[in-house]
Design a binder for these strands. Sequence first.
DNA 1: CTGAAAGCGCTAACAT
DNA 2: ATGTTAGCGCTTTCAG
Lengths: 332, 332
Amino acid sequence: MTTMDDVARLAGVSTSTVSHVLNGTRKVNAETRLRVEEAIEQTGYRRNVVARALAAGRTNTVGLSISALTNPYFGSLVHAVERALSDAGYVLIVGDSHDEAESEKRVVDSLLGRKVDGMIVAPAAGSERASLPEIARAGTPLVLIDRGADIESDQVGPENESSAKALTDHLLDIGHTRVGVVRGLAGISSTTERFDGYVAALSDRGIDLDASLIVDGESNTEAAERGVYALMSSADRPTALVSMNNAMTIGTLKAIRRLGLSIPGDVAFVCYDDFEWSDLFEPKLTAAAQDVETIGATAVELLLRRIQGDDGAAQHIRVPTTFHHRNSCGCA
Amino acid sequence: MTTMDDVARLAGVSTSTVSHVLNGTRKVNAETRLRVEEAIEQTGYRRNVVARALAAGRTNTVGLSISALTNPYFGSLVHAVERALSDAGYVLIVGDSHDEAESEKRVVDSLLGRKVDGMIVAPAAGSERASLPEIARAGTPLVLIDRGADIESDQVGPENESSAKALTDHLLDIGHTRVGVVRGLAGISSTTERFDGYVAALSDRGIDLDASLIVDGESNTEAAERGVYALMSSADRPTALVSMNNAMTIGTLKAIRRLGLSIPGDVAFVCYDDFEWSDLFEPKLTAAAQDVETIGATAVELLLRRIQGDDGAAQHIRVPTTFHHRNSCGCA
DNA sequence: CTGAAAGCGCTAACAT
DNA sequence: ATGTTAGCGCTTTCAG
């Protein structure tokens, strides 16, 4: 493998000069620079980023801990983050936390050991007490994405409460009074906030919260399907349903289909999160769509600012959702 | 930041001993080990993976170059690869090639500079002449995933030709003679092979290939939608359609919907690639499903073997698809 | 404008 | 069973 030494020797200069032409870190005689560039060309030299990182004390690398890469929503998020970072000359290392604090800790540990310059985390339930303090202790810049946590750090996520309220309000507006809700994984802020939005909508109209109308979908489609199946099999089932994320939506739709119920005829339906195919589905789904691109880009922006040394107050940014009024709500 | 020196000093041993207890690379007195472990605990020491990599000459890192993380298919693939690697103690670095040889070259360069121990690549069109030779020159173990290329290296992908043929055969079996095809991005092996499967099915029945029935969906949903819209607007449109990957399928369905045509009434439909929601969609889609888990795990297995020094002949592995007979083909 | 040389934090001979 | 030490390939101060 060719090293800087080889290049220096071939060009008849010191490694220090080679390093400087490579990095543009000091003025170099045009002619010398040319010789160096030729030597690089000739040898096919490629700088060893590992050695560079060790010497320079930064890796130009950012770590991302995220749950469930399989979920298309997170897939898009990773994509958005990756693009923003690579535009800024950084490389992304992703770890999947499976939404468990313990496995998140492993991911974070590994990332920290790799001396990432910064970290973006979609915190699992319980990570305030597990990985997040470690990151703080290591002094690594951090921004939370998608969900929040009760710590001092930048955070970027979608608007949850008011969007969930708007979805629920819509069902209420068109006359429903028994509205079921399918909520996501317990213990994470987005679940709580979206549920709060649902509750707020009800309470605005003086409707009491009915615990029997709440389905806990945990993290997965299957749980949501089971829960909705049970709920919708009951005698006094709700006339409308709000689903709080895309996995919940798939589960819900499967259950409804399995029961032979029709949307919106037998039950009106609205959901948080949009799908690429949501206007393909019959009926088209009325949904609140997140702006994943903006969320990802914003997280990166905040993080880079921290990496560059900004130590202003922590920012909490909410990116608005877009309400897509289609026909699963049944008010055409 | 605490280093091995700090730990060694606190434990009253040499750094070499610390290193060996950390790595289990030589026997150390139980008592000494305990002292070291305590010192590690006390200082909150975490080994600097960058320094380790430089000294040891390996990074325990694998690079993955893939196109379009947004595509749920690739999302699952990344997920599968990540899991298999992390089980083996490796960390994944992902780069998005956007299916362009040039941007793939950037990704590969960066990965190579980071001294990844191995590389998994879903080659873009033209990468035989761009990034792949570089990887070979660097001597980095490589396995191709999803698509093949005409080089000497391990390759893992889905069964394409026979699966595409089976899909087409099915339409032919139930009496269609004018079968349109929506193919994927030109220049990559999966597109070619799947198209070959379509052609083979026709030729088996003595049906001539009709160029007017071929839609080139390029890489994206929009192109597929436009192409199918045009095709299905024509007077003598086909009575059946095969779509060759999930992006093409979404485009096709959008076009059909836009034209107000019904499946399978106006046109029978089958597709390569399955969706999580494919039995939610009405009608349920008849599809050939890839086994992404197996593809990912196999790629990792082959790669690790190479990393461990195996230099046997290159293997080309095809993972079978599963035919899901549902009702978009209209032969219920 | 350029070079010499001291590390960055760790691993792995080589000694003892 | 443990310690000494020479690097790994680069960056960056300090001299010139």
